[in-house]
Simulated scan of single mutants.
Amino acid sequence: MSEIHEGGCQCGSVRYRTTGQPHRTAVCHCRYCQTRTGSAFGVSAYFNGEQVEVRSGELNRYRFTTESGRSFETQFCPTCGTTLFWTLGLWDGVIGVAAGTFDPPSFWFDVTREVFTRSKAPFVTLALAESHETTASYAPVAGDSPRLRGQ
């Protein structure tokens, strides 16, 4: 039997279940994750789509194009606004799950990687096995909006 974990949004309207282990995890310091979370970074657990099941509630979606020209779509509770999932145009069929939305223990998987340290908050100090200024797939075709660059 595969490992099962459940989670949901802050108000409890949306509930989900994951099966098995995530195939990738990371702490991400990119500006998109900073604005998505309203914090210094996001903690992400990536699963194949068939490993994630929304068990109750409805989700709103917000889609935009990254500076690398790829789609980024967040899915969030329309009642409380909690972002639960996202998909990246780079990884077809893969769903990112906001690690803090899992029921306790929220951080049940290993995180050994951090990405986009170039925009890391100066007060954040992590001791992870891998640390990358961007990612291998980072290939900007346009600049981010001035507000994301602090202009």
Rank of each mutant, 00 (worst) to 15 (best):
G100M: 10
P105T: 14
L88K: 04
A99F: 04
F85K: 07
R118Y: 03
T87I: 08
V97R: 03
V94D: 09
F107W: 14
G93H: 09
P105V: 12
G96H: 01
T112V: 13
F116V: 06
G89T: 03
G100R: 04
I95C: 03
L84G: 01
G93R: 08
G89R: 00
D103Q: 10
D103L: 14
W108G: 13
E114L: 10
A121M: 11
W108V: 07
R118D: 02
A98F: 01
L126H: 13
G96V: 03
V97D: 00
L84Y: 04
T82P: 01
P122R: 11
G89H: 01
F85G: 03
L88P: 00
P105L: 09
F123Q: 03
T83C: 07
D92E: 11
V111D: 03
G89W: 00
D92I: 00
E114A: 09
P122L: 02
V97C: 08
L126K: 10
C80L: 03
A98S: 15
L90K: 02
G81A: 01
S106P: 10
L90M: 02
W86S: 12
A121E: 14
A99M: 15
W108N: 12
R118K: 13
C80A: 06
T101A: 08
V94W: 04
S106H: 15
V124F: 05
S106D: 10
V111A: 05
W86I: 02
W86C: 06
L88Q: 08
E114Y: 08
D103F: 11
I95M: 05
T87S: 05
G81L: 01
F116K: 04
V97Y: 02
F107K: 10
V111G: 07
A98N: 12
T125W: 02
G89P: 04
V111R: 02
I95Q: 07
D110F: 04
